[in-house]
């Protein structure tokens, strides 16, 4: 499944880029992330709990950052699997200055498998969009609280 869109955060690209490379910030921004532990260069083991309405599921997986071109772009690969299925997202994030803030455009692919894929087709698109939105909203509030 293709996932593309953009979100604007009210701080400059340098700041946005730096934040999105910081595992502590990522841990606080990725919705449901419970822990992020470094296992290699730009690679982290992640535990997350996804809670969405009645749905709840624990996932274990990895976050990997690659192709870093500060402060304009990098790739983020997120993989997770749990009892209810597995997800893999691989996307390019491009940062451009906009009105004193940054427009972060994302473009990538998501794979979903297991029970979630089999019974959640109707909702995957909407859910993915919401998770991405939450990520950026969290990023924004982390930035605010760090001032």
């Amino acid at each position: 499944m293709k996932i593309a869109g953009s979100y604007t955060v009210p701080f400059p690209p340098e700041r946005a880029y730096e934040m999105m490379q910081d595992p502590d910030v990522l841990a606080r921004s990725i919705p449901g992330c419970e822990s992020l532990e470094k296992i290699g260069e730009n690679e982290y083991r992640m535990k997350m709990k996804m809670v969405l309405a009645s749905l709840s599921g624990a996932f274990e997986g990895k976050v990997r950052l690659a192709d870093q071109k500060p402060p304009s772009s990098f790739r983020m690969v997120v993989e997770g699997s749990g009892k209810i299925g597995f997800v893999k997202g691989d996307g390019l994030l491009t940062l451009t200055p906009k009105d004193g803030g940054t427009e972060v455009a994302y473009d990538g692919d998501a794979q979903v498998g297991g029970t979630m894929a089999a019974v959640g087709q109707r909702l995957i698109d909407a859910t993915a969009k919401m998770m991405i939105k939450r990520f950026f909203e969290n990023l924004r509030s982390v930035e605010v609280s760090s001032r």
Partner: peptide, 14 residues
């Protein structure tokens, strides 16, 4: 009507 099917599929486990 939503919660029980999700529980049966083990997508929800209250």
């Amino acid at each position: 009507m939503s919660l029980i099917p999700m529980m049966k599929l083990r997508l929800a486990a209250p």
